[in-house]
Simulated scan of single mutants.
Amino acid sequence: MIKNNLKKLRGELSQKTVADYVGITQQQYSYIERSDRMPSFEVVLKLSQFFEKPIEKIFFTLKNNKQLSNKTKQSKRRQCDGCRATNQGTRAKGSCT
């Protein structure tokens, strides 16, 4: 499921203000903000321009966030065994962290 940070980014602005900039109705914007509807790519680009944020800072999936968290944890747990890091092949002696 795709979620978004639109409400947080919008702050004190009205939904109508954002919707007018993007070229959709306030009702359509409301559906998008609540994740009831997925916007067209054109609308996504306009939202990115309006908020001056990359698309991935506005829209995200919960599954990807969990996967990223797990990858980060795994990389922190990498162990060195005689300067041979797991999943990274042989390293120069003393370069392990």
Rank of each mutant, 00 (worst) to 15 (best):
I2P: 09
I2D: 14
N4A: 10
N4M: 08
L6M: 12
L6W: 06
K7N: 11
K7V: 01
K7C: 02
K8N: 15
K8A: 15
K8Y: 14
L9R: 07
E12S: 14
E12L: 09
L13V: 00
S14R: 06
S14H: 05
Q15D: 05
Q15M: 10
Q15R: 12
Q15C: 03
Q15H: 06
T17N: 14
T17H: 14
T17V: 09
V18P: 08
V18N: 08
Y21P: 05
I24S: 01
I24M: 02
I24C: 02
T25V: 04
Q26C: 03
Y29N: 03
Y29A: 02
Y29I: 01
S30W: 02
I32T: 02
E33V: 00
E33D: 06
R34G: 00
R34L: 02
R34S: 01
R34K: 05
S35M: 02
D36M: 04
R37S: 09
M38A: 10
P39G: 04
S40L: 06
S40N: 10
F41C: 11
F41N: 15
F41T: 14
E42Q: 15
V43Q: 06
V43A: 12
V44C: 13
L45M: 15
K46G: 12
K46A: 15
K46I: 07
S48P: 04
S48E: 04
Q49S: 12
F50V: 06
F50L: 10
F51M: 11
F51N: 10
F51Y: 11
F51G: 09
E52M: 08
K53M: 10
K53N: 06
I55R: 07
I55G: 04
I55C: 11
I55L: 10
E56D: 13
K57G: 05
K57L: 02
K57I: 01
F59K: 00
F60T: 01
F60I: 03
F60G: 02
F60N: 03
T61C: 13
T61A: 13
T61K: 12
L62N: 11
L62A: 10
K63I: 07
K63Q: 15
N64R: 12
N64M: 07
N65G: 06
N65K: 15
K66S: 13
K66C: 08
Q67L: 12
L68K: 13
L68A: 11
L68I: 06
S69T: 09
N70Q: 13
N70K: 13
N70C: 05
N70W: 03
K71C: 08
K71T: 04
T72M: 15
K73F: 05
Q74I: 03
S75P: 00
S75C: 05
S75M: 11
K76T: 07
K76H: 11
R77S: 12
R78M: 04
R78P: 00
C80E: 05
C80Q: 01
D81I: 04
G82Y: 01
C83G: 04
R84L: 06
A85C: 10
T86N: 05
N87M: 02
Q88R: 08
G89L: 03
G89S: 06
G89I: 03
T90V: 12
R91V: 09
A92C: 09
A92P: 09
A92G: 10
K93V: 08
K93L: 07
K93H: 04
K93D: 09
G94P: 04
G94Q: 13
C96R: 02
T97A: 09
T97Y: 07
